[in-house]
Design a protein around this nucleic acid. Sequence first.
DNA 1: TTGGAAAGTCAACAAGGCTGACGTAAATTC
DNA 2: GAATTTACGTCAGCCTTGTTGACTTTCCAA
Lengths: 164, 164
Amino acid sequence: MAETPGGENLLFLTDEQLRKGIEAMFFAYRGFTADPDRILEGKDYGRAHHRAIHFIHRSPGTTVSNLLTILGVTKQSLNRVLRTLIEDGLVRSEKGKADARERHLHLTDKGQMLERELSDAQRARMRAAYRAAGPQAVQGFRQVLEAMMDPEMRRQFNRLKDGG
Amino acid sequence: MAETPGGENLLFLTDEQLRKGIEAMFFAYRGFTADPDRILEGKDYGRAHHRAIHFIHRSPGTTVSNLLTILGVTKQSLNRVLRTLIEDGLVRSEKGKADARERHLHLTDKGQMLERELSDAQRARMRAAYRAAGPQAVQGFRQVLEAMMDPEMRRQFNRLKDGG
DNA sequence: TTGGAAAGTCAACAAGGCTGACGTAAATTC
DNA sequence: GAATTTACGTCAGCCTTGTTGACTTTCCAA
């Protein structure tokens, strides 16, 4: 057994174990996106629309630049997505009262319905996985994921986590 | 507290907890791909090339159709990637001896070098995350990821896991 | 010998990233 | 009050990576 001076077992840090973790991330992410992707195909929307809808739902009234920071894409890219969502009546964009340069984004009832459909599907898979693995495993899952994030992403994640 | 008849605490299955898990996956996956993406940009390759290189390294001599199954893309899409890798001398493709229709894929020395560079970077992040979270957490991480996969992906994953 | 599987090619297209340039309105600063 | 900065939108064009469809070549196997 590989033991440190401190005495703990470090076999979970071997290249082989790390490779398994990397491949697990790859395959699991496919599962993670599979259900929403299936729902969206044929609706003229894609993963990018899903992400926008998710975070607008998550933070109603959020501004375009907030969304840009969270999603990590260019405004041109986000704008293309947002424009179709607004045209199709899923998202409402309104001028800020305090600062009229900003656009505050909300889901319409129609937008809420699609959000619900998508997140129900995604949560169902997540719930099944959580239930199968158990609370202890879920805690570890969350710890490792958070440690994998870039510091800037972790800040975004934790800001979202604690409301707002 | 939400307790089942069995008595266990099910608060880890609330919609709020599931949403956090979903967002953690989103942000963590960004981190997961960030380092290889950085290395590849400016090298004329992308994530698709990385994936092909990874799995050819993982299973030397694998066939094109094996790779298609694992990657879950169309042969046209994979072929475009593979062609550039072969042209650039990173991948060697040779006719099968038992079945000459098949093409067996190997990394060249040059391909091994790039694979090493990419996987070193990706493993470094994974190792840091594993170390920060600890072996117990890693076990949970792996359990939840595996439970999230589609059954077919889980089969692929486990086939890879146990050599071959 | 013929049917079908494996591999590859060409063409066309779409989603969703990107850069660069430009315009407008509103807020802020000087 | 003028100049600058900020937030947002948009046009044009590019790249990667996915898709479908049609077609060919090779070659195994019935």
